Simulated scan of single mutants.
Amino acid sequence: MTDRTSDEQRLLQLHHDWYYSNFNINIPLMRTVFPRGEENFLMFNLNGHPYFGVDDLADLWSYYARTGRWGLCADYVLRVEALGDLGYVLSEGTFPAWKVKDPDGNFLPDDQQRDLTLRYRSTEIYKRDDGAGQPEWKMWHFHCSTRPPDDEAPPAKTEHDAAGVRGLGNTPYSVGIRTEYKVGP
């Protein structure tokens, strides 16, 4: 990997904070990643639906906080780049989650609880704009989709190109960055 610019380091920190905020649904930390203003953020969520603005996302997370348990992602950055006032982060990983409660927050019987752990791939778009015109990096768009099993070879490629062989975050020309988390103080 090449040395990172201070802007790229900032994008990696926001990326870290975004994925860490998913752990046990930390809405205050999540809000620090996105711009202010309801029209300034658009997400294509892993659940398949769009969310418009950070308040819309906070409402979704409040629902998830009542119904699930959320672990730390095993996240690997494939690429980070800052170009002027725009930047992006591309990553892939595994997001552990379990549905353990109904929408009212009551625990489900054991036979109705579900492991929702997902393999994902994400694209994050950043602008050096806090939503109020101040030059502060914020994530303006997030798109997440499921990725195939780690042992599945992409069409027109061989089993050597499967994620489990190449290693998450790795590309033919670079080694990925593992997002490291520290739980607790």
Rank of each mutant, 00 (worst) to 15 (best):
Q134Y: 06
L11E: 03
G169V: 11
L118R: 15
I25S: 04
A82G: 08
A74T: 09
F44V: 13
D129N: 13
G37I: 08
G131I: 06
G105Q: 08
L12M: 01
D104N: 05
V54G: 13
Y88Q: 07
I27Q: 05
V89Q: 07
A162H: 03
G68D: 03
Q113N: 01
D104C: 00
A58W: 04
P155L: 07
E159Y: 06
W18A: 11
G131C: 08
L168V: 03
R31K: 11
Y64F: 13
F34N: 02
Y181V: 09
C73P: 00
S62R: 15
Y173S: 12
D56S: 15
F142M: 13
E81G: 04
E159I: 13
H160D: 14
A97N: 05
S122P: 01
Y120Q: 13
D56E: 07
Y63E: 13
F52Y: 15
I177K: 07
A162D: 08
L57R: 14
N22Y: 05
D115R: 02
K138N: 01
L86V: 14
G176E: 02
L11K: 06
F95H: 09
K157N: 06
R114N: 02
P35Q: 05
D161H: 11
D115G: 01
N24L: 04
E124T: 14
L12T: 01
G87K: 11
R36G: 03
A162L: 10
Q13E: 13
Y63N: 12
L60M: 12
D161P: 00
L118V: 09
L168F: 09
E8G: 02
P109V: 10
V183C: 00
D59H: 12
G84F: 07
A65T: 02
D129G: 05
W98Q: 12
Y20G: 02
A74G: 04
Q13H: 03
P148D: 15
G169D: 04
F52D: 11
T2L: 11
N22I: 09
V100I: 15
V77Y: 00
G71R: 07
T32Y: 00
P109Y: 09
F52E: 13
Y76R: 06
I125T: 14
K157M: 14
G176W: 03
D129W: 06
Y20H: 14
F107Y: 10
M30F: 09
Y64T: 12
E38N: 12
L42S: 10
V54C: 12
D150K: 04
S21V: 01
A97I: 02
P50F: 01
Y173M: 12
Y181I: 05
G71W: 05
R178L: 12
P135Q: 10
F142T: 12
E124N: 13
Y20I: 02
V175D: 10
S145C: 05
N106E: 09
A156V: 07
G84P: 06
H15V: 04
R128E: 10
E38M: 07
L118S: 14
A97W: 06
K99N: 12
K127F: 07
N106F: 03
K99I: 14
F34Y: 11
D59K: 15
H143I: 05
L83E: 12
N47C: 08
D59V: 15
G87H: 02
G176H: 06
A153W: 00
S91L: 08
E81D: 10
T5N: 02
G133W: 10
W61A: 13
N24G: 02
D7P: 05
A153D: 00
I27M: 03
G53L: 09
R36S: 07
D7R: 08
D161M: 04
